[in-house]
Design a protein around this nucleic acid. Structure first.
Lengths: 290, 290
DNA sequence: AAAGTATATCAAAAAAATAGATCATGTTAA
DNA sequence: TTAACATGATCTATTTTTTTGATATACTTT
């Protein structure tokens, strides 16, 4: 049983006769006849009843064709996938996204991407801080994170800025002070984001290293801050709601301004899918939300 | 691109080398090599990188194989379907079921059937009364209905009995009378089941043909009866609940006892699936619930 | 009855797949 | 380090499979 035989079968049924199918397939009529005979021999039952003028499917033939049609459809799809891969499109694209990245900024890109390249799988590596490391270790194709150019191994492009503001819960003792000094802060634990990757220590703005609570993601950090466990910096876009409903309050510290960037490995060419993501952000569409 | 090539590809990956695959497939190594070369030529990209000792899939190859594996799986399934059909199993079985048939009696049979023959589609033709007609016109393979042997054209087997009891709503005027006579009944509309098929008129027990309301299914009949629209006969199994909660009451009429039967066309052999259904009921398993 | 259209079948031809041998290369174990 | 072994590519000859073109037979239509 070959797929070609199934395609011949389908053509016969859609065209109505062996002869018409042979013309449609640009083969001799005897070839079509032979193809069906060998298929029927192998299957062990007749696909067509030939006692009428025109061949009609047997009940078995009808049931068989139904399943065979699905197979042919999937086969055609495989052909399309092959075309897609042949043109150099990536079967999967891996995005390393920093925890500090404003996620709403991503969904627009991903929406457009997945409608344009439905064949390409998207893998989000939602790392804490060191998204560039993911590039260097070939765990990601594109990184969306804060700027940190690694000895020219990466091609980066600066995008927009994120302000990291110092906050604590409204019920926290620090909230009572007008403008807490570093001395004031030292008395309470600071919640900080920390990467599991050791190589690059990028923990900026730590007040008292001895008195910190490290977490691995922004969501946890926010919960800890809201619960009054300590104080710490948060990206402004992530705490708008909390400030509005006053569960978090800003302390008088000057915000730290982070520069976000898109990056890729200089030694690895991006395919059409990667280029689309790259251009989406580098041409500024990704900046809109900011 | 042929399915055989995909199977070779899959074997190479699972066995780890071209040579191992060739042994597994009982072919020469050169045949496997040739098969992959022609496939790669047609696809337009390399499936394997051959710079290492053992061939490893390229990223494209990996993505391609993933989809190809699905195809192979579905192909194998088609082979199983073919085996199934070859053994004479019916791809579809059509059951004509009378509206008077106790449905809970069916579910047991269908449950067991679908677990034993998952490949066979079940079509229920829930006809009103004339299920045997469905057999004669080749719209059904087996009929479950009330007895009515058509000139020996059908093979039937008697199963169990269903009592048709005369009822009306508790709020209906007839409910007040102790034992309403035919004269009493004549004053009110009678709700009757009527078939769309004209040929055989089997409407038994009609009191006053002029004063009837015809419905096509038992559910509607029950709703009409409960609403007090009229009186009529219902199978006892279908109104147990309503009698219990007193929304329907029985009138003093003697019940009509219907004999149910299973039937099939004498000129058409049943396949294994049909025989299973037949035996399920004729050997009495279907009677349990009654 | 005649002309037109169907499928099956056959022998010959064409095309495709396979086998077996050989080569260059990489791996493993003594 | 060397010798034995394993791997995939490539080539030619062989085998198998598919296709063709011609012919036979059957059914439909006019």
């Amino acid at each position: 049983m070959t797929l070609d035989q199934l395609q011949v079968l389908k053509t016969i049924v859609s065209s109505g006769s062996f002869r018409a199918a042979s013309q449609e397939l640009h083969r001799a009529q005897s070839a079509v006849s032979y193809s069906m005979r060998t298929l029927e021999d192998e299957l062990g039952f007749k696909l067509f009843s030939r006692d009428q003028y025109r061949p009609t499917l047997t009940p078995q033939g009808r049931a068989f064709l139904k399943k065979a049609s699905d197979l042919i459809f999937q086969f055609d799809e495989l052909g399309e996938t092959a075309e897609f891969l042949k043109r150099g499109h990536e079967p999967i694209i891996r995005l390393a996204v920093s925890a500090l990245w404003p996620l709403p900024n991503l969904v627009g890109a991903l929406k457009e991407f997945s409608s344009r390249f439905p064949q390409t799988e998207i893998k989000i590596i939602h790392d804490v801080l060191s998204t560039d490391e993911q590039l260097l270790e070939d765990h990601a194709d594109i990184s969306l994170g804060t700027i940190f150019n690694e000895k020219g191994l990466l091609i980066t492009e600066e995008l927009f800025t994120v302000d990291m503001v110092m906050v604590c819960a409204a019920k926290h003792p620090l909230a009572k002070l007008k403008k807490p000094t570093a001395e004031d802060l030292k008395k309470y634990p600071q919640i900080v984001l920390s990467s599991t990757v050791k190589s690059s220590d990028r923990s900026g703005g730590i007040i008292n290293p001895a008195n910190t609570i490290s977490v691995q993601d922004l969501q946890t950090k926010k919960v800890f801050l809201e619960s009054g466990l300590g104080y710490g910096r948060m990206p402004d876009f992530a705490i708008k709601e909390e400030i509005k409903r006053k569960s978090l309050v800003t302390l008088g510290q000057k915000p730290i301004t982070l520069h976000t960037s898109i990056a890729r490995h200089s030694a690895k060419e991006l395919g059409p899918c990667g280029k689309f993501i790259w251009n989406y952000f580098s041409r500024g569409q990704g900046k809109k939300l900011k």
